[in-house]
Design a protein around this nucleic acid. Structure first.
Lengths: 130, 130
DNA sequence: TACATAGTGTTATATTATAACAATTTAAAT
DNA sequence: ATTTAAATTGTTATAATATAACACTATGTA
């Protein structure tokens, strides 16, 4: 069992906001939402985001510059992530598939190199949008 | 056999630059490099990049906000991409593995949904940096 | 206590990307 | 050939995303 990270005040405020959001949040939208709690500057947001990403509490959706909470209980480190993204409604879902993660963790490139860290984004249309 | 896209002047200039670059190029670095050829504004660069991405001549490395030429001759559409990225020297290589692309194209999520479009970025250390 | 590490608050600025509009080129289809 | 639609261009302005640098404060731990 790993040690739980104790979040600082800013980290907790920002994590709670992202965690409650049904959709990925962008940094400046986060900033706007936490200004009433005393977080006034972009850097305060970005620093908390960096840390939260590092410890695996949130993930960055690279193609959208947005952040979602990790709902994959095993993520204690930012390491191996996979998402599906609806190109119409922009709904993002974290994929947790033992088969997929095993396949990717064991994937070897031409040089026989393995990569323990990866990010995979699938694009398509979600159920509702089809 | 698909129809080849004929690139416009701006698109060709920008593609040539990216194609010759040994590493991914960022938009404003591209801009700087093509100013002597008459491309003066960011939008001119971004528009060419958008088109080149759309037709699969280049790919965007999302985690780096940078662009590389496609060396995977079959890419006529931006669709299914995989890269390895060295976290030290930032070297980026396009992975072309029939096994990987087959696996991902056939991957089904919990709802049985398939995704024909995806982007995968592997992170690690390249040979030189280990 | 002292020390290292991580986090904070702040101002300023760098980097990445798009909006809006008018003009021009290109392709193709009568 | 002429018209038409679609794509591309050039331009100015601005929006959105992210980091640099500095002084200070809290926290854990040896």
């Amino acid at each position: 069992m790993h040690k739980e990270h104790t979040l600082t005040k800013n980290q907790q405020i920002i994590f709670d906001l992202i965690d409650k959001s049904p959709e990925p949040m962008k940094a400046y939208s986060i900033l706007f939402n936490v200004q009433k709690k005393g977080i006034k500057a972009p850097l305060q947001v970005y620093r908390a985001l960096d840390k939260l990403v590092k410890i695996g509490k949130i993930h960055k959706i690279e193609s959208r510059n947005a952040f979602i909470a990790c709902h994959n209980s095993s993520c204690r480190v930012a390491k191996a992530t996979a998402f599906s993204i609806c190109e119409i409604c922009e709904k993002v879902t974290e994929i947790s598939s033992a088969g997929l993660s095993k396949y990717l963790a064991n994937f070897k490139d031409k040089d026989g190199m393995k990569y323990s860290k990866y990010n995979l984004e699938f694009f398509g249309l979600c159920k509702k949008c089809r």
